[in-house]
């Protein structure tokens, strides 16, 4: 099967699987909503939240949401079914389709999270278009790096702690860039001043997705 149609089929398969057990995505949504509400309550009903804290809180919630949403991408399906995929698909197709599907999932979660977060804690963002671009890039970035890490963690016995310690350091450089660029968007600074960060973010995404593409076949074989 050519790679692209394979990827399209696998993404369609993931979406229909997700749609059949909606409890998984509903669980993640509830998780995000509950953490946002906890932040609201802990910061004296949102009155103590300045733009810096607003931004940091939002991205920390997004990071944990991403970890929980993506950690299950290889845990969800049984060993036998993995074996089945092993025979009918190429590993490259599988990892790209997982990253693509997770990016889509993360984008939906990020947009819903952003909307709910703004509703509850107010929205200080001045440059909304730039913030939106950062949301898209961060969804792809989180999906790219965490999918590979969740693949590694699933080989090591589906350990949630392992998933966390393996992914934090890998995601951190990206998170730092995201927080800095999105702070610029909140302050409504000139877009040229965030160009460096956006470029680095894009470069990190490209590097990580390329590496996943190259390394996943080795992970898959073991």
């Amino acid at each position: 099967m050519p790679l692209f149609s394979e990827i399209a089929h696998l993404i369609r398969k993931d979406i229909s699987l997700e749609w059949r057990n909606r409890y998984a995505i509903n669980g993640i949504l509830l998780y995000t909503a509950a953490s946002i509400f906890i932040c609201y309550l802990s910061f004296q009903m949102g009155t103590a939240v300045g733009p810096i804290v607003w931004n940091a809180l939002f991205w920390i919630i997004m990071l944990f949401t991403a970890m929980n949403a993506i950690a299950k991408s290889f845990f969800q399906e049984s060993e036998q079914r993995h074996y089945y995929y092993y025979h009918i698909t190429s590993p490259q197709g599988l990892i790209i389709s997982k990253i693509g599907y997770n990016s889509l999932l993360m984008l939906i979660l990020a947009l819903l999270g952003y909307a709910f977060f703004s509703l509850i804690l107010g929205n200080p963002v001045q440059d909304k278009a730039l913030y939106f671009v950062i949301l898209i890039l961060s969804s792809i970035g989180f999906a790219g790096s965490l999918t590979m890490v969740s693949g590694i963690a699933s080989r090591a016995g589906n350990n949630a702690v392992l998933m966390a310690i393996l992914s934090f350091p890998v995601v951190l450089p990206m998170l730092l860039m995201i927080i800095k660029a999105s702070k610029n968007a909140i302050d409504g600074l000139d877009r040229a001043s965030s160009a460096d960060e956006i470029l680095v973010l894009l470069a990190i995404n490209v590097i990580i997705i390329t590496l996943s593409f190259l390394l996943f076949p080795y992970l898959w074989r073991s």
Partner: peptide
């Protein structure tokens, strides 16, 4: 050996 080699390369890139 295999999985840690994969993580090693991945981590180095980060």
């Amino acid at each position: 050996a295999r999985i840690s080699a994969i993580y090693n390369i991945f981590a180095y890139a980060a």
